[in-house]
Design a binder for these strands. Structure first.
Lengths: 156, 156
DNA sequence: CAATATTATTTGCATATTGCAACTAATATT
DNA sequence: AATATTAGTTGCAATATGCAAATAATATTG
């Protein structure tokens, strides 16, 4: 499990770099990595409330609020008041926002193709399946209220 | 490959949250996530030069320089001039720095144990092996000069 | 049903992070 | 010796972040 922690740490870091270079080099629009995550998540959920997205991304609602403001200014995201609860703001991608995200997708996919290209078909399948397992496991571990029971006593 | 991009994106994000909550909740010292990555990398390499670490982490050397200054102030990292080239600064963890990092390790490992706990032994092995493959593949794809040949024409 | 509590979101403010350009010091090249 | 390159630092302006407080809408409760 020890080397697993290391493998994960390194992998996640490298993937982050990939992701960042993508947001940088890709599309002309200036989209930060945080913002690309936001776009990604808005697309994934269907007209999600601000709360929901912020939580999923582990972002302070306050920071999130400001990011959305920026994305709205850039005309990549639009908001509307929920008909069910007028406190709630629902988010959706504008056509342009979707276009930008699609471009990022394309870029990432191309990079990933390249990375996976060095593997055998069998390896590739194994890896993809593993990612599924991993995500599922993280989700399961998370929903049991990671904050509370996950807290480890480790202050000196 | 499409769903792979999605799986990866989500996984990396969630792992990032795990990591962040760790830096937060764990050890009393105030260590940001970026800083924990720096500690991690200094330990992994042996007395690496600033350049090397900054590059591995994909951090601007200028930002990195300041982070190191902070970590030095916190007495978690120490620097010394390279005997071979006096322009070069070599980094190493202080005892305290190592202690903090070890604490973060413990915390992460415990969390990971929990996550992997929901899997069968077989699944676990598959996943760990896949991570190895993935890292290897990313490394290979990276060393061929990802910047140049990886660039995809995608400006509108 | 009025008073109170809760929830969603925004804003002010202080701090931390980042990127770029310019600078210093040391080493390499010519 | 003059010039170029490399490692690292610093100033400055732009962002991003966290916390506390404010606003507005909905829920709860006596």
């Amino acid at each position: 499990m020890d080397s697993t922690r290391e493998q994960l740490q390194i992998f996640v870091r490298r993937f982050g770099l990939l992701n960042a270079s993508c947001c940088d080099e890709c599309c002309g629009e200036q989209v930060s990595m945080a913002q690309s995550h936001i776009l990604f998540e808005i697309r994934r959920a269907d007209s999600p409330a601000m709360q929901a997205v912020a939580e999923e991304l582990g972002m302070e609602i306050t920071t999130f609020s400001r990011q959305i403001k920026t994305l709205e200014t850039k005309k990549l995201v639009s908001r509307r008041v929920s008909p069910d609860d007028r406190r709630v703001t629902l988010l959706s991608l504008s056509d342009e926002g979707l276009r930008v995200l699609t471009q990022i997708d394309r870029y990432m996919t191309k990079r990933l193709d390249h990375i996976f290209g060095g593997m055998s078909v069998f390896e590739r399948e194994t890896v993809v399946r593993s990612l599924g397992l991993l995500n599922e496991a993280v989700r399961r571990a998370g929903e049991a209220g990671s904050r509370q029971e996950g807290v480890v006593a480790c202050r000196k």
